[in-house]
């Protein structure tokens, strides 16, 4: 059994966010009027300064918190395993092996290890860690732990993967490699991703849509399209096209931070 692009490759609408506000404690407006339609195969970056509600948006989509106003709807309804999440930290269970960690989404649905073993190994293979299936997280480097976390998010072949600054804590070299690998992965399985970041370069390199957000109150101020075709490789990083997109995203980010003290 392999992770096939067939149902995932479709460009059909996956998720629709309509006029969502989130107010904490009755006074703190974390997010105002967020509307976004996510289509199959999209790689959307939420880019903005801290406090702009990027993470709040992800938590709303993950149904960990509920919107004060507005609606978030999955087209065709949400089933178990439709959503995969990667946090800023690898968030692995230290007492479980790599394979057992990747097993978690299935295990919580009552599936035995034997019945999903192939999917687990396939996911580990995709992130290049099939040799480490019996290792414990402490034996892995930061980048490898993050790969396990990505494998866990992908193993159920979710319709949408949420990533909350997953590479922010890693060093630049590891980060570049994981960026490349993530795109290779997207190419292979055609997943749909919403990616929160505060790095202009990362957002331009990875995504085809960049949603630029501003803080106080958290809101969308601009949506940019990066029309460079996938697969993108190292050459894209040095192309004038890339530089131009970075420029545009950077300008939008400055606009978002206007009037804010640094």
């Amino acid at each position: 059994m392999s992770i096939s692009p067939a149902p995932l490759g479709s460009r059909a609408e996956v998720l629709r966010i309509e006029g969502v506000d989130k107010v904490f404690g009755g006074t703190v407006v974390a997010l105002k009027g967020l509307s976004l339609t996510v289509n199959g195969g999209d790689f959307i970056s939420l880019l903005g300064p801290s406090g702009c509600g990027k993470s709040t948006a992800l938590r709303l989509i993950a149904d960990l918190i509920h919107p004060t106003r507005g609606r978030i709807t999955w087209s065709g309804g949400q089933a178990a395993g439709d959503l995969g999440v990667v946090f800023q930290e690898p968030t692995l269970m230290p007492w479980a092996t790599v394979a057992q960690n990747v097993w978690l989404p299935f295990r919580l649905r009552g599936k035995s290890y034997a019945s999903v073993k192939d999917d687990i190994l396939e996911a580990l293979k995709l992130v290049g860690l099939e040799r480490f299936q019996n290792a414990y997280p402490r034996e892995l480097s930061g980048g490898m732990k993050m790969r396990v976390s990505i494998a866990r998010a992908m193993v159920t072949k979710p319709r949408l993967i949420l990533m909350d600054e997953p590479f922010a804590a890693l060093d630049e070299i590891t980060r570049f490699r994981l960026n490349n690998d993530l795109l290779a992965l997207k190419d292979k399985i055609g997943c749909t991703v919403i990616f929160v970041t505060h790095s202009v370069f990362e957002s331009v390199f990875l995504s085809d849509r960049i949603v630029v957000m501003a803080a106080r109150p958290g809101r969308v101020i601009r949506e940019l399209t990066v029309d460079a075709p996938y697969p993108r490789d190292e050459d894209f990083r040095t192309s004038p096209e890339y530089a131009a997109h970075c420029r545009a995203a950077s300008d939008a980010l400055h606009e978002a931070m206007e009037g804010e003290a640094a």
Binding site: L83, T91, L108
Partner: peptide, 26 residues
């Protein structure tokens, strides 16, 4: 228990018993 792991268990629809057995007890 790690807060992100708790969130993950919620996202994957873990029952109380599963959260206790697979997350809190270890």
């Amino acid at each position: 228990a790690d807060h992100n792991l708790r969130d993950l268990f919620r996202i994957y629809g873990a029952t109380r018993w599963q959260t206790l057995r697979f997350l809190q007890l270890p």
